[in-house]
Design a protein around this nucleic acid. Structure first.
Lengths: 338, 338
DNA sequence: CTGAAAGCGCTAACAA
DNA sequence: TTGTTAGCGCTTTCAG
C-alpha cells in the first residue's frame, strides 16, 4: 500500500482509499456523471480536500476521450488586435472551464502551417479558435478544418466556416465618406498586411471611392514595422495631390502622421489622416485620431461562444456582424489649397 | 481488427500493424529512446506518414510522466509589457519543442490565485513561467512555488526564486537624473500599479532624487485605465510647481501629456515628461517620448532559458540583469519660469 | 447507488 | 535490436 508523498501527487486511488470507497465512485463525484449517496459524496469531498487532490487532465482526456482544452491559433500574439482577441477568447474559455493553449503559426509556409496544425492535433483539444487576420491564419484554418472543431475570427465574412466577424468594410467606407464629405477630392490608402487578396478595410475604402466617383489612388503597403508607416508618411507628404489618408490601423496612422509632421506639414491642417481600431492611445495622440472602433476582445468572446455551441452540437449562433462605430476626433478637417 | 477511420485518429497500434512491428518499436522510433534497425525504422516512418499519425500528447504524458507543456501565468495578456513577455516565452518555448498554455490570474484574491494554480497543476506541465509584474503574479508565484518548477519574470531582483529580471531601478534613476540635469528642481512621479509595496521604477526615481538632495513630491497613482493618466496630467498641469514628470510607462506618459496639452500647456516647453519601456509608439508620439528601453520579449526568452536549465538539472543561468538604455527624445527640456 | 473489470494510447522494464 | 508484460490515472461499461 502506497501513500501520497510530496513527490507523488495524490491520485484518485489515494482519494478512494482515504474515503473508503471505490475509485469509480470518486470519479462519479468528480464528473457528476452519476448519482452518489450523500454520505459517500461527503466523504469523498473531504478526502479530496485533505489530500489536496487534483485530477490529472491527461488521464481524464485519455479515458474519457473528451478534452477541456481550447487552442488559439494565431500568427501573432502581441500586436494590438491579436492580443485583444486572444484576451477575449481566453476570458470566455476560462469562464466556461476550459484551459487555453496558444499555438503560433510563424508564416504561411507549408512547414510552419503543418507544425502548428500538428501541435494542435497532438494536444487533443476540444476545439480551436483561429485568428484569420492574415495569410498564416488563413492557411492554418485550412490545415485544421476537417480534423477538429474550428471557428475563425475574421474581419471579412466568408461562407462555409463557422466564424465570428467584425465587419470592417462598412466602417472603412464610412471613414472614407467622412473624408470625402469634408471636401477631399480623394483619399489615399495605406494598407496593412492583409489576410488574403484584400481585406475589408481596403474593400470598404475602394467602394466608397467608387460610389463617389472619386479617383482611386494606388495603394501604399506597410509592414508591421512602424518605421515603414513613418516613411510612407514622409513620402505622401511630399506629394501635393495627397490631402487625405486612410490608414489600415491606428498605429500605422500614428507613424504616418509622425512622418508628415517631420516633413514640416501639419495634420489635419495640411493633410487629414484616419486610423482604424480605436487603439487605446488613439484618443491620446496629438492630434487625436479619427478612427473606427473595433472590439477585438468582444470578437474573441463571440468566437468562443460560437465554438462552444458547435461543441454542444447546437446550431451555430447567428453570424452576428458588429459594425464598428466611427469616432471623429482631431486628425481630420477640410482640405486646404497648398 | 479495426482500422483508423476519419473519426478515429490513427494510434500507435495502427502504425505498428501497418509497419509490421510491435508497438514499443514504434514508440522507440518516436522517442529515439533506443536503437531501432535501419529497416524497421524506415517502415515505421513510412507508416506514420501514410496514416498521418500523431502521437497523443495526453497518453505520452501519462505513460512517461514527462510533459512538453509550459504554462505562462500572468495577470494580463494584452498589455504591452505582458504581451511582449508572453511572446518571448512562447517563441523560445516553441523553439525548444514545448507547447504553451496560458493561465490568467484575475486578481490576488485567494480564490483567483487558487484557481490559476489548480489549472496549472492539473495540466501536468513541465514547468511554469510567471509574470511577476503585479500582486496577482506575486501571489501566483507563491501558490505554485514548491509544487512545480517555476521561474519568475520580474522588474526587481529578489533572492530565492529562479528568475529573469529586467533591472528597472537603474534606468529610472537615469531618467530622473536626466531631468534633474536639465535644471528641474525636482521630478514628480506618476506610478503604475506596482508588483508589491514598490517597484524598481519608483525606487530608482526616489533614490535619484535623494542622491541629488531634491525634494520628493508625493506620488500620483494611475490605474491601467489610460483616462486616469489623462486626468492626472490635467491636475499636475495646474500645479505651477510641477515642471518635470516621470511616468511609470509610455502609455501613461502619453495620457499625461495629452492631459497637459488639453490644459493649454505644452510639453516639453512648459513641462517635461518621461515615460518608460520605449513602446513602439513612443518615438511616433508628438512630442516623441524620452524613455528607457525595456526588452520584454528578451526577458521572456531569458526566462524560458532559465526554466529549461532548471528542468535539465543544470545550474541556473547567471542572473543576468539587463540595464535598459535610455532614449532621449523630444519630451524633455530645461524648465522655464511660469 | 456501488464496485469489479476493462481499456484509453502510450512508455518502461524485462527477457529473449 | 526486438517483443512481451505492466502499468500511467482516469472513465466506462456491466453486474449486482
Amino acid at each position: 500500500m502506497t501513500f501520497p508523498t510530496p513527490d507523488r501527487p495524490a491520485t484518485i486511488a489515494d482519494v478512494a482509499r482515504a474515503a473508503g470507497v471505490s475509485v469509480p465512485t470518486v470519479s462519479r463525484v468528480l464528473t457528476g456523471a452519476a448519482r452518489v449517496s450523500e454520505e459517500r459524496r461527503r466523504r469523498v469531498e473531504r478526502a479530496i480536500a485533505e489530500l489536496g487532490y487534483r485530477p490529472s487532465a491527461a488521464a481524464q482526456v485519455l479515458a474519457s476521450r473528451r478534452s477541456n482544452t481550447i487552442a488559439i491559433v494565431a500568427a501573432n500574439t502581441s500586436r494590438y488586435g491579436y492580443a485583444e482577441a486572444i484576451r477575449g477568447v481566453e476570458e470566455s474559455a476560462r469562464a466556461a472551464g476550459f484551459v487555453v493553449i496558444i499555438v503560433v503559426v510563424e508564416s504561411e509556409r507549408d512547414d510552419d502551417v503543418r507544425a502548428a496544425a500538428d501541435a494542435v492535433l497532438r494536444q487533443s483539444v476540444a476545439g480551436v479558435v483561429v485568428l484569420k487576420f492574415d495569410p498564416p491564419g488563413v492557411a492554418a484554418l485550412k490545415a485544421l478544418e476537417p480534423a477538429v472543431p474550428v471557428v475563425a475570427l475574421s474581419g471579412i465574412p466568408e461562407p462555409g466556416v463557422p466564424q465570428a466577424v467584425l465587419d470592417e468594410s462598412e466602417a472603412a467606407a464610412g471613414l472614407t465618406e467622412h473624408l470625402l464629405g469634408l471636401g477631399h477630392r480623394t483619399v489615399h490608402h495605406v494598407r496593412i498586411p492583409p489576410s488574403g487578396k484584400e481585406d475589408g478595410r481596403t474593400t470598404g475604402w475602394r467602394s466608397a471611392l467608387q460610389r463617389n466617383g472619386s479617383p482611386i489612388p494606388s495603394i501604399e503597403d506597410v509592414s508591421w514595422e512602424i518605421t515603414t508607416a513613418y516613411e510612407i508618411g514622409v513620402r505622401l507628404a511630399r506629394d501635393p495631390a495627397v490631402t487625405a489618408i486612410f490608414c489600415g490601423n491606428d498605429e500605422t496612422a500614428m507613424g504616418v502622421i509622425r512622418g508628415i509632421h517631420d516633413t514640416g506639414l501639419r495634420v489635419p491642417a495640411d493633410i487629414s489622416v484616419v486610423g482604424f481600431d480605436d487603439h487605446p492611445l488613439a484618443a491620446m495622440f496629438i492630434p487625436a485620431l479619427t478612427t473606427a472602433r473595433q472590439d477585438f476582445a468582444e470578437l474573441g468572446r463571440h468566437g468562443t461562444a460560437q465554438l462552444l455551441a458547435l461543441l454542444n452540437g447546437e446550431s451555430p449562433l447567428a453570424l452576428e456582424t458588429v459594425e464598428p462605430p466611427i469616432a471623429i476626433r482631431e486628425s481630420t478637417a477640410p482640405p486646404r489649397r497648398r
